[in-house]
Measured scan of single mutants.
Amino acid sequence: LVRYRTISKIPQITLNFVDLKGDPFLASPTSDREIIAPKIKERTHNVTEKVTQVLSLGADVLPEYKLQAPRIHRWTILHYSPFKAVWDWLILLLVIYTAVFTPYSAAFLLKETEEGPPATECGYACQPLAVVDLIVDIMFIVDILINFRTTYVNANEEVVSHPGRIAVHYFKGWFLIDMVAAIPFDLLIFGSGSEELIGLLKTARLLRLVRVARKLDRYSEYGAAVLFLLMCTFALIAHWLACIWYAIGNMEQPHMDSRIGWLHNLGDQIGKPYNSSGLGGPSIKDKYVTALYFTFSSLTSVGFGNVSPNTNSEKIFSICVMLIGSLMYASIFGNVSAIIQRLYSGTARYHTQMLRVREFIRFHQIPNPLRQRLEEYFQHAWSYTNGIDMNAVLKGFPECLQADICLHLNRSLLQHCKPFRGATKGCLRALAMKFKTTHAPPGDTLVHAGDLLTALYFISRGSIEILRGDVVVAILGKNDIFGEPLNLYARPGKSNGDVRALTYCDLHKIHR
């Protein structure tokens, strides 16, 4: 019993810090008490220290592992850092350059016999395009090294910054494609005289377009951006097909006994025919423009016929181009109408809503002055909100995010209106959640004399007048207030005048 009563005193000691020596009952000389009392004092002292730490809000209350900052290894790049964003855009520009100039170089340097010394005699450094290609190869190699040090988000939505895990993730992902696209074939085969082989191998750079397509997928929600990307894709495919079309004609031209190829026909049409040795002929500019003209006309199913396939190889390629053109029509131009419709969806919704308003007016036989006010209010409210119901949009977000959005939407009023000066951010967040926005066209009466005042109004834009009878008592403008002081009276009061809008007004109100 003594032991039980001794232990039962522990909660009292913990909360009230009572010393055991003052209790005459606990001072009985028993061996059990002498053993338990020192333990009680020690526990009391420890609990006292913990309570003191909690009340003082000291940093040592938290466990040590929670006080440590997340460790980022040296030379690790955050995937959302500004440097990584700028670097990704730079790589994107280099990939676009590669997609345009690599097929052009591979096709127009394929057994090209233009006048001038061969590239091997001039030297590697004197070729501007080769120098640019070398810079692109170096940048792609540097990009691989950067990807080995860039964080990523795993399946659990955690940012991984450990170098080993980053390397394994990159090896399992895009490393092989990036490595093949970054191989400097110019340096590996330079001086061997195989410019045709170098041009063909350099087309491996186009593998990076797969990554670019995935990154550009984030802009699919913007109709104008999608339309622009589709047109660029169409032009890029036409450019690639033009390079292939020229390569076919250029390879067949020296081996044909009869002059029936499209390059021969082009030379005869523009007065620059090929001679018996295969030299001469149109310039590279004429060849490229004509090839691009043929691919565009074939892809769009126009086909004027002034550039036509004559050999079997050219006919087979033309059939493939027609098939590609039909697929592009289905996948690209078939979506253009939907994209344009999405661009004008706001206008369509406006006309639909206006039609419903006019049908309501016609069905209920609203008189002319009231009908005009109804239409003007709808037009003004639509121009202010673009038909978007803010309350319906915010309803799907958590309250903390709703408060931040409301604070942002009402920031101008909260910053410049005098009653809100000096208020804490928590108070402003709470008030912003209570605001209701209303609009009024010129001549609209917001409050009639004798109406119950259940709200306090803040003028965000425009001006109003307060009338008693036919006498203008006051004219209020931006950041002015009218209405009933909230919670100042037990019952809502009545208006002693009319409140009429002089201009288009936007008002925020808080109800009782």
Rank of each mutant, 00 (worst) to 15 (best):
Q415G: 11
F83D: 03
H73T: 11
S298H: 03
F140Y: 01
G278Y: 01
D137H: 03
L413A: 07
P419D: 05
A224L: 14
E376D: 07
H79R: 01
G334H: 06
L209G: 05
N306M: 01
H448W: 03
I339C: 06
D88A: 01
Q269V: 01
A225P: 05
E121A: 14
D88W: 01
H239R: 01
T113E: 10
I324L: 13
W262C: 01
I270L: 08
F304D: 01
P282V: 01
G261L: 01
L236A: 01
K418S: 09
K66D: 04
V159C: 06
R371C: 12
A423P: 02
I138H: 01
G267Q: 01
S105I: 04
H448K: 03
Q127Y: 12
Y246S: 01
V357S: 03
I340Y: 08
L236P: 01
A392F: 04
A338W: 09
L409F: 04
K202D: 01
A155C: 15
G278L: 01
I244K: 01
A430K: 10
F333M: 05
L394V: 04
L227A: 05
S161T: 12
R356F: 15
L241H: 01
I146E: 01
Y293R: 01
D257Y: 01
V289E: 01
L134Q: 03
P163I: 04
V160S: 01
G223R: 04
E376K: 15
A69V: 06
A449P: 02
P309E: 01
M256N: 15
C417A: 09
A242T: 01
N368D: 08
Y274R: 03
P103M: 01
V136Q: 01
N306A: 03
Y170I: 01
L413G: 01
G199P: 04
T437G: 04
V307H: 01
M231F: 11
I366P: 01
R71D: 07
C126E: 01
S313H: 03
L67Q: 05
N368T: 10
T347M: 08
M322T: 07
N312M: 01
I366Q: 01
S308L: 01
L187R: 14
V100A: 01
V160I: 14
S220Q: 13
L355E: 11
R74P: 07
P82R: 05
A69I: 08
G280W: 01
L67I: 03
F175G: 05
L279R: 09
S194P: 14
Q379S: 10
A213P: 06
K215S: 08
P128M: 07
L134C: 05
K111F: 01
M251P: 01
T437Y: 12
I405K: 02
A440C: 13
H351D: 03
F108A: 01
I96S: 01
